[in-house]
Design a protein around this nucleic acid. Sequence first.
DNA 1: ATTTATTTTTAGGCTAGCCTAAACCAGAAA
DNA 2: TTTCTGGTTTAGGCTAGCCTAAAAATAAAT
Lengths: 251, 251
Amino acid sequence: MHASIVGQLKVCLSYRTIQDTVILLFNPLSIDLVHSYTEENYIKTIFKLSANGTQEVNTNAIAEALETRAASVTDMLRKLSAKQLVNYVKYKGVSLTQEGEQVALQVIRKHRLWEVFLLEKLKFSWDEVHEVAEELEHVNSPLLIQRLDEYLGYPKFDPHGDPIPSESGQMMVKKQRLLAELEIAEGGVVVGVNDSQPLFLQYLNKVGISLGSRIRVVDKMAYDHSLEIVLEEEKSLLLSSEVSRNIFLSA
Amino acid sequence: MHASIVGQLKVCLSYRTIQDTVILLFNPLSIDLVHSYTEENYIKTIFKLSANGTQEVNTNAIAEALETRAASVTDMLRKLSAKQLVNYVKYKGVSLTQEGEQVALQVIRKHRLWEVFLLEKLKFSWDEVHEVAEELEHVNSPLLIQRLDEYLGYPKFDPHGDPIPSESGQMMVKKQRLLAELEIAEGGVVVGVNDSQPLFLQYLNKVGISLGSRIRVVDKMAYDHSLEIVLEEEKSLLLSSEVSRNIFLSA
DNA sequence: ATTTATTTTTAGGCTAGCCTAAACCAGAAA
DNA sequence: TTTCTGGTTTAGGCTAGCCTAAAAATAAAT
């Protein structure tokens, strides 16, 4: 059988031959084509937007997140829909198909593994990591990611405390609570952040909060919802409501 | 002064201000714009083609190397010429400008550093390295490359024995001779290969030749220019002329 | 129910990078 | 010198991804 046809067999469930004609029976969910840099970014964005909040994502939200225009988003949604990566109904918003979700999870896996590498091996700081990982996540080589994962010791969480999906798209779920939701006298260990912008991470660095820091709430100001906390049972700090809504503690 | 203007100052020699109007005086050689994935590949290819042999590179050679058509090459040469990266005269071939050469050297630097990383840290084999590095070389982050270089211990040569250009574009030059050019009883240490195709590297692996192997020529067959050699003073081998023209030994 | 405001889509156009087919140039051969 | 031949360029066209402006659909407000 011709090599290029044999190459396709691994993505199809079965095949039959009738007089020299090969009939391929595809399982649409198992076709893992390579997607463009741009397509990957759209899918990742849709995943993130549907994760925190509503089910259906609307066009403007995507446009804003990707710093592009609504018309461009519509174009791409029609393309992704044709590729069966999203469920798209005109004027009604969009959601990922199962296959689209797998694509998103693999991009996120690559992104987070590179973040771990940059931080642990190349000594990048918490806030320098994101931008570079944003480029590296689109390098396409399953072998590379597999070896990188091994080299890093199969980490389950990235430097921001976010879980790293496995090769098959599974993620650890961490029981976590927003610092802002704790009552007086409650406490916990910092396991993640809700905002990865450099400015926020630099702020945390400055006040001495990092993954693993132990925090206890001492007082809550009813006026502006700011919090008085104790860090590592020794340093007292006042955190704004803004900040306390962006730190996750172990539950 | 406005931030976006200040951002440009680092690439210009000087500036003067006349009634609120800033005049930037550029040194055309110092402008290091970001070039597209495709542009980088053309420049790298021109560099490689002009390195081994003639000065002026012709259109068809580039087309063949990049697996594209001559017409597409012409398009790109006009574009690169407008950007001052190449000296291009219609029908007369093309060569890199000083700036173009710097771009080429930086791409090669990135490529070879990633090759070292893949081989030494991620345990890739000699022949798996190239393809992935071909993608990684276009990731654009000076900080990343600087840290990677540091992490790898500032290597001067890549896994194929080729020199790694420095940040300023300097390369070590190794005195080396082709195995094919040695006389009977001469010998040396393998310092590089002249062909990085997987098939050739897999062949070397199989017969046990790698960087650092010690080789001595025992006999040369006048008929087909094949060579009888001794490897590590213990194993006798017969190498074809083809193979002996693709192995470099220390001089 | 109708009007108004907002969101989304279509229509048409742009650039980068690629293609084929046809025209063009340069250097070798006659 | 002229002719031939092969390499090179132009002309015109394609897709991906982006844009603006205008039209259409939905949601909100009267």
